[in-house]
Design a protein around this nucleic acid. Structure first.
Lengths: 140, 140
DNA sequence: TTAAACCCCGTACCCTACTACAGGGTCAAG
DNA sequence: CTTGACCCTGTAGTAGGGTACGGGGTTTAA
């Protein structure tokens, strides 16, 4: 199976070479095998992993959270039931994020519509739109 | 209308006093009027604004992006059409995030289900689940 | 066989978004 | 009229997540 150099992985996954070394230091990607020269030899799979990291980061997950997500597997340390529970808790977390984003989207839609009609908007229309229904849940 | 001290705003919106001063320095919240003593006097509205900032941050928006969202209004510098366009572009952005989160959620659901059946999972099942359909779109 | 393009390690630096003093004034309760 | 909680303005430090050298070895294609 073809192995990739760090530069190839970097280009294919859209991050810098330094970032890959940084991810390795912090344990987010495994230390790859080396050639005799010391050059890293990445399995092609690494590209997929790094792309996932990049996307998850763009969605607001921290590297710690991403690491948790990527380590969801049944192994010597975690049972099937444990993995299932952790996955479910992540699902709830993600669904909460989706709901909040939908709230923002709807507020923006309302703003765009209102603006089209009235041609003038309030002091901070997105807050108006978001809170019009007084949905004041208080989360931590 | 009742005005709030910085400490009251902080407690009611779930951030620290220092954070409010920081947001003021960076222009994310307006400089409030002061008493003769120099104490800040916040309008009650500020609480709503700061809560929004906190939530948007948790969703992965940067302070810069949040500032853009909050400044979506028709004023001397921006026309209605301009606001509408910016709102629509934010909507597309948010919908993209929602789609990606739904993808992650579905992958996690599949993982939880697979795990229940097979009791043992692959090296990185969430990546397996996410990429099973080889949906390799390449975004910047 | 050499020159461009890569790779190695280590350390230092950068940006964002806070967070924590220090040193000093203010306010409300008792 | 004092005491403790609160506020003020600096300025400095921190954590997370990279990014940029410096100094040097390796590959590869001409």
């Amino acid at each position: 199976m073809a192995a990739l150099t760090i530069g190839q992985v970097a280009r294919q996954s859209g991050v810098g070479v330094e970032t890959l070394r940084f991810y390795e230091r912090t344990g987010l990607i495994e230390e790859p095998p080396r050639r005799d020269s010391g050059y890293r030899q990445y399995p092609v799979d690494t590209v997929r992993r790094v792309r996932f990291i990049r996307r998850a980061k763009a969605l607001g997950f921290t590297l710690k959270e991403i690491s948790d997500l990527l380590s969801l597997r049944v192994d010597t340390d975690s049972t099937c039931a444990d993995v299932r529970d952790r996955a479910r808790s992540k699902i709830l977390d993600i669904e909460e994020r989706i709901r909040r984003l939908e709230g923002m989207r709807d507020a923006l839609k309302q703003l765009a519509a209102t603006c089209a009609k009235e041609g003038r908007t309030s002091e901070c229309p997105i807050l108006e739109a978001l809170y019009r229904k007084e949905q004041d849940d208080d989360e931590g």
